[in-house]
Design a protein around this nucleic acid. Structure first.
Lengths: 193, 193
DNA sequence: GTCATATTAGATAGATCGATCTAGTGAGAA
DNA sequence: TTCTCACTAGATCGATCTATCTAATATGAC
């Protein structure tokens, strides 16, 4: 068909929501950024802004999950180094984008937690998928599954919070420090080699 | 004077920004929630929404900093228990408020990081003040000042991220797990008793 | 080629946004 | 009292928001 308008709208939405949040991004801005005609927006997303939001969250979530798995797969056995690598990806992304590209959904997640149940739920599912991917990596390194799930939640929380701090302060210090402490903490949980 | 209109506007702003974010909160909603006449808003805050936002951030930040210091003071020597207590405060606040009261400024911080330099700076200052308060507590427990500053950044990041997860999932699990891991990590850094 | 459908085009509605303005009210100072 | 000034009241402005609507135009099936 050679028509990727829908995809462009989705990616423009994901990028803008990531930077400016949900309420702070207008549909007009999305169509402009996506190079899509206004009429197409409600054609592809008849549910309006909320549908666009939900799909953008899921889209960003799935892409980031692949990044998780790719990082863990590339790291092989050394799970601690994988964690460090993943933090480093965010360091690079923040610096490269001028502190715009933090977590793809955290901004929206906080905004909509008390204002839109469908969007909150979409965010919760994404976080759960990331936690699961993280937990698989930790379990693969020999940590008992139940403990791996707990540590995945912890590591994800530390990661998200470090992004909040680094993006706000325009300084990667929080991400770098948090990466080291989390890496050390996780190493201590690994089974004796 | 017996006129606390300005204060009511400030507190209503702080509460609404905390729940719904900056862009998602209208000035009309603020005056209504604060029981203040529309005309008063631009009388007390001639700088408009941005001034109101900056002052609300500083207001929330100072109040939360006192909560930090109060928790640390009450805990006496046992810094690890202080950390646990502080996480517990958030657990209680989230449950009591129906998952509305998370971090007082995180939602706004993420939103404005790429859209308003004055507001971003206000958030950065608040985070710095919390880190400093945290670091004082850790240093008071015998951790070398430089390391205390690092651990404060780490603990604050973990705390913020856990709030993001708990508020989004409507489950205090992330906060509870993160509190335990962080507490264990910090205990290992304390000088031998 | 013809027809049905998918997509685009963009005007428009109706609401709400932040901000400004003038007029009015009220309490305390002189 | 009378004056002054902090504060309130709320209409109003232009911009922007989401959403809907009708036409026009492509596109692919047959």
């Amino acid at each position: 068909m050679a028509n990727d308008t829908r995809q462009r709208l989705l990616e423009a939405s994901a990028q803008l929501f990531r930077e400016q949040g949900y309420a702070g991004t207008g549909l007009k801005q999305i169509t402009t950024a996506g190079g899509a005609p206004w009429g197409s927006l409600y054609h592809f997303f008849p549910g309006g802004k909320e549908q666009l939001g939900a799909e953008a969250i899921a889209h960003s979530g799935a892409r980031y999950e692949r990044l998780f798995e790719l990082t863990f797969a590339r790291g092989g056995e050394d799970i601690v180094q994988c964690v460090r690598d993943f933090f480093q990806l965010s360091v690079d992304a923040l610096e490269k984008s001028g502190w715009a590209d933090g977590c793809p959904i955290a901004t929206v997640a906080m905004e909509v937690a008390s204002t839109s149940e469908p969007l909150r739920h979409a965010c919760a599912e994404v976080f759960a998928s990331w936690e699961a991917a993280f937990a698989r990596g930790l379990a693969g390194a020999g940590i008992p599954p139940e403990r791996a799930a707990e540590l995945a939640t912890y590591a994800l929380a530390a990661f998200e919070g470090a992004i909040v701090l680094s993006r706000t302060t325009h300084d990667t210090r929080a991400l770098r420090i948090t990466a080291e402490v989390v890496a050390t903490t996780l190493r201590a949980e690994l089974p004796a080699a």
